[in-house]
Amino acid sequence: MKSAVIVFPGLNRDRDMIAALTKISGTAPQVVWHQDADLPDVDLVVIPGGFSYGDYLRCGAIAARSPIMDKLRERAAQGVKVLGVCNGFQILIEAGLLPGALMRNKSLKFVCREVKLEVVNAATDFTRGYKEGQIIRCPVAHHDGNYFADADTIARLEGNGQVAFRYAEGTNPNGSINDIAGIFNEQKNVLGLMPHPENLIESAHGGSDGRALFSGLLGQAA
């Protein structure tokens, strides 16, 4: 599987993501700068975490209006898989590729710790490396991960299997509705999540629960 990572000014998790994709797929992703005219011909496009444009205006708001995002929207409509982690999730939401909003954490604090995630829907390309209901460890590091959407949208997400991951065992770090940690678009080819699976892929990280997301996605055995 060929992949690309889009980099915006202010991201800081891009190298972690590139390392994870390279280690798990055996091939380095193509790195796309936000001012590049087009996306390469790949199967997966990833927007990593960080603080694009210093989180000015709203987290992800400025990056979401970059011209490269029009290209990403076209690819997503064609079925190319898109993964957004942390700020990448915020950017996908601001770009309208995923519904809802990510608001300031309920505690008002930046939260950097490990949480537990429940795999809610394991029947997708992104989550097939897990079992439905499986509880996994995953680190989080964010200030604005409090997922919000109106009641109709939440009901639709829950009914369509669009909730990918939920914070489990009382570890919700941000007050998100229904403990939502990550969601799919309706077609399940776009996934956004606040936690960082790329930071838990090998023993040096203290665990490898995040690895199956990439290995499942990249079509390899976990």
Partner: peptide
């Protein structure tokens, strides 16, 4: 509509 406000919230 396009930038200054996030009309979801």
């Amino acid at each position: 509509e396009k930038l200054l406000a996030n009309t979801v919230i």
